[in-house]
Amino acid sequence: MGKLAKRTRAADAPRGVVRVLPFEGDDDALLRGLVEGQPIATAAFCDRYSDHVKRVLGRILGADSELLDLHQEVFMKAVLAAPKLEDARNLRGWLTVIAVNRAKTELRKRARRRWFGLDPGAKEAPEALAPGADADAAEALARTYRLLDEMAADDRIAFTLRIIDGMELSAVAAACNVSLATIKRRLQRAQGRFVQRARRDEVLRDWLQQGGRWS
């Protein structure tokens, strides 16, 4: 069990500003602090898992303008649900499940909106492209997600987490709360559909023609 660092006011900090020092405890301490509503634990919780949640959401949905809102929702939900989590060793996996479920809800919402013609897919373009980014890869990525928009949410989640993110198969199964056999079936189905459609895409086809995992 780790110890919580003492919260102190730095001598040179502006009046009224409380500086939160780094949290030194393990996930057990973190969960306890989270349940007790300690700001230092809340901050540490974000610091430790913020990038992970952003990556999970980003892989599944793509880097779009709503990602920040979803990111906040996932953490809000996690903080609320923290008292129900019994084993802190699974904190990361538990948070991943929350993120995946939120992404799945979002995918279904978007699918409904598309079906009703309410969402033409006019999302904002991603915030910024890193200097020196590969334009061909950006195009391939964009086309990949366009194809994924046509895929069932469960299949898309399996595909993005396993194929694009490279997550372990068992971790993907746990994140989707299904058995390993089920996730393998989803992945096989998703790959098959993706390859079939990608071969009709003039850009992705070039990548696939060289053979490999999807060919």
Partner: peptide, 23 residues
């Protein structure tokens, strides 16, 4: 390449507001 490209896009999305919001 897809992962790298997406990482670059994700890096550009600032999620620090989540922390501020929770605190």
């Amino acid at each position: 390449a897809l992962r790298h490209e997406q990482d670059a896009q994700l890096d550009a999305i600032d999620v620090s507001r989540t922390r501020e919001l929770l605190l």
